[in-house]
């Protein structure tokens, strides 16, 4: 195969640029982990060091002490987040892929307009629509309940968009074969389409999980016992100087689930994103 030759100078430049900015991108992670394992006297040391003399689990221990003394049992926050994330993620994947299939393969009157609105809505993420959404949800009477955490991300535009783009690449012949065998729309979707778009539903599953995990909608909750895990942990994380090390430990723990999930599904996600272009 003939390709434009890569000059050595060019290759070195590429590597140096990536190395330099890669360090900038990675540094906060490194620093957070470092601080999380430092004892108090090393955190407040001048000048700060990039290694730990006496690594300690003290900071992680003190998280468990802190959460033992909460007014609402800590387990309650865990249950809240797990319940909402699991139910919400499952429903989102189902609803988005069910809607994406006809949009991708059987355009009907109104489908194009609907999809264009969805594309426009990719821009309007949670924080922009928060206040108008609050007004509408207050009108529905769902503020300060699980529904306030669960419902808004269910119809996230990104999930539907990625799913529809991915499904467009399914060969028509496969669908026709299913139809000839007498399968209805729902049956084709469930039996034929879904097994063939694993990469896509894994991707939107992970995106949805991240949204719920990071505490979307926690601004609509006032009752302490309904709040998600992130709210209480972020309170600890930003509690100030006296609990500086604990704060770092909490941010490290909170970051781990979404980042680890991404590591294990990176290739599937990139495969899905190959269809993400807006034509």
């Amino acid at each position: 195969m003939k390709r434009v030759s890569r000059s050595r100078a060019g290759n070195v430049t590429v590597l140096l640029l990536l190395l330099f900015f890669g360090v900038f991108m990675f540094f906060p992670f490194f620093y957070a982990v470092l601080q999380a394992f430092k004892p108090m006297n090393e955190i407040f040391q001048y000048p700060p060091k990039f290694y730990i003399v006496h690594p300690t689990l003290e900071n992680f221990m003190s998280i468990s002490q802190l959460v033992d003394n909460l007014w609402v049992p800590f387990g309650r926050y865990v249950v809240n987040t797990l319940l909402v994330s699991v139910v919400g993620t499952a429903l989102h994947v189902l609803l988005a892929s069910m809607a994406a299939f006809p949009l991708a393969k059987y355009p009907f009157p109104g489908s194009r307009v609907f999809f264009e609105i969805v594309v426009l809505a990719l821009m309007f993420n949670g924080s922009v629509t928060q206040i108008p959404q609050y007004v509408v949800m207050a009108g529905m009477g769902v503020i300060d309940s699980y529904l306030a955490l669960l419902l808004p991300p269910l119809a996230g535009a990104t999930g539907l968009f990625l799913m529809k783009q991915f499904m467009s690449s399914i060969p028509d012949a496969m669908l026709e074969a299913a139809q000839i065998d007498g399968a209805g729309r729902m049956c084709t979707w469930w039996r034929v389409v879904m097994p063939n778009v694993k990469a896509a539903w894994l991707t939107i599953l992970i995106f949805a999980f991240q949204t719920y995990w990071n505490g979307a909608g926690s601004g609509y909750i006032y009752t302490e016992s309904l709040k998600p895990l992130t709210t209480i942990l972020n309170q600890i994380a930003t509690a100030g100087v006296a609990r500086a090390g604990t704060g770092a430990a909490v941010t490290v723990l909170l970051m781990l689930p979404p980042v680890m999930i991404f590591v294990f599904s990176q290739s599937r996600i990139v495969e899905t994103m190959a269809h993400s272009g807006i034509k």
């Binding site: 890669g22 991108m25 990675f26 906060p28 992670f29 620093y31 957070a32 601080q35 991240q210 995990w213 990071n214 992130t230 972020n234 994380a237 930003t238 500086a244 704060g247 770092a248 941010t251 490290v252 909170l254 970051m255 979404p258 980042v259 991404f262 590591v263 990176q266």
Partner: peptide, 18 residues
């Protein structure tokens, strides 16, 4: 992974306040 990780790391950016 190195470049994408920050955007999914939740509130890790508060480390910048240190």
């Amino acid at each position: 992974f190195v470049f994408y990780a920050p955007s999914i790391s939740g509130s890790l950016f508060v480390i910048f306040s240190w």
